[in-house]
Design a protein around this nucleic acid. Structure first.
Lengths: 227, 227
DNA sequence: CAAGGGTTTGACACTTCCGTGAACCACCCC
DNA sequence: GGGGTGGTTCACGGAAGTGTCAAACCCTTG
């Protein structure tokens, strides 16, 4: 189970060096040469950690980091030649988890990545694969929901939405949260889409969809799934 | 609401400098001069973050860090004069979350602490998001208040107001404080709005809203929530 | 006890938010 | 190409929530 890294740097030479060094450490590497590509790559397939250079052709690393943070919690390590303390502070304030300066020592970078993963991992590994809410059994592995031994015919999106809500264990999920988790971060559509799918979900899982017992709305906040 | 730091360093001079700088940043500081004291302090009252010097009189920081990790997940930042990359790797491998070198820049250290807390916080607050005041149970995650097993129908603003007061643990909250916490910093309205919402809250949570028992006014100061 | 500042109360208008239904689009598989 | 499935967008109406105002009501102080 190798971890995946996204390397964001405009210099191909540096990307090659880092790629070689980090592949040696057992990571699976993908690359982006600018902020735009980075955001696209992030959206397409989120890596476990992002290594972000400060100097990028289209916009600076701080901005990219803030844009990432707008809809993702992915660990970000800033990698740069600028050693000034103000830059460190600015980088961390922009949402980065760590800030390391070139020249890089591969072993150290790798150790910092490991430290970060150690801290992040427990949170992201789902504790359970099977959630039980009311009379529903939500099997994430099999991607199906069972009631009274019968499989409910949910669509992909409906299922992901339900699973996400189940994972929150009764806590309120905002539309933004659900959008980024279910639809993938960087989604630019109408947030009302959540409502519509919630509604369809209610039609399928609630006994009386007009007065939901499980899938309740928290007005002004979002939705939550109660037992 | 302030975060607590445990400062582990054998030089009183350094402890004093760090304490002053970090207290300025709003942290609450406790100190230990050696590894043994540090472990004891950690057991007595776990801080939010440990700042650990590498050179200690009784045993080195790596060892202390490993001992901490044997029964705690508390965030650890190593603070040391040794800049050698091997030491960085060793420190991180010993279980530290970050490794910074002296001479220290207070702002940077503070930024790193914040970054670490940002990463750790969501996991640890998961347990402590339930306040109990009188016969009220305030569940911040689910955004609901329960009395006698019944959910009180509070609005978003009412809930945030109540949660904020609950978080103050009986202390008086000024209108300005409540305005900035609940309505958001930079709100330009009448501060009487707080009164109005306090009233609406009383109607819902007080048994006799005319003579409030929990949500009492501190004339000329603000309001507070008593048990 | 009268004045004055702070607080409570009730009413009202305004805004925001959600549910709903329907139409539209994209894709896939016959 | 047509039908089916699933996803997205839009507009609207009603309900819920919020801010403002003014009058009534304290409590405190001189």
């Amino acid at each position: 189970m190798a971890h995946s890294l996204l390397l964001v740097d405009d210099e191909p030479r540096i990307r090659r060096v880092l790629r070689l060094a980090l592949e040696d450490e057992g990571y699976q590497i993908s690359e982006a040469a600018n902020g735009f590509d980075a955001l696209a790559a992030l959206r397409r397939e989120p890596p476990d950690v992002v290594l972000l250079d400060l100097m990028l052709p289209d916009r600076d690393g701080f901005t990219v980091c803030r844009e990432i943070r707008r809809n993702s919690d992915v660990p970000v390590i800033m990698v740069t030649a600028r050693t000034d303390s103000h830059d460190v502070v600015a980088g961390l304030e922009a949402g980065a988890d760590d800030y390391v300066t070139k020249p890089l020592v591969a072993k150290e970078l790798s150790a910092r990545i490991r430290a970060l993963l150690r801290r992040v991992e427990p949170a992201s590994t789902r504790t359970s694969d099977l959630y039980v809410v009311g009379d529903l059994e939500i099997d994430v592995g099999a991607a199906e929901v069972v009631r009274d031994g019968e499989v409910l015919p949910l669509t992909r999106t409906e299922f992901k939405l339900l699973a996400e809500l189940a994972c929150a264990e009764g806590k309120v999920c905002s539309r933004e949260q659900l959008l980024s988790q279910v639809w993938g971060y960087g989604y630019f559509g109408d947030s009302r889409i959540v409502d519509v799918h919630i509604r369809r979900l209610r039609l399928k899982i609630e006994h009386d969809p007009a007065t939901p017992k499980h899938l309740v709305t928290a007005r002004g906040l979002g939705y939550r799934l109660v037992n």
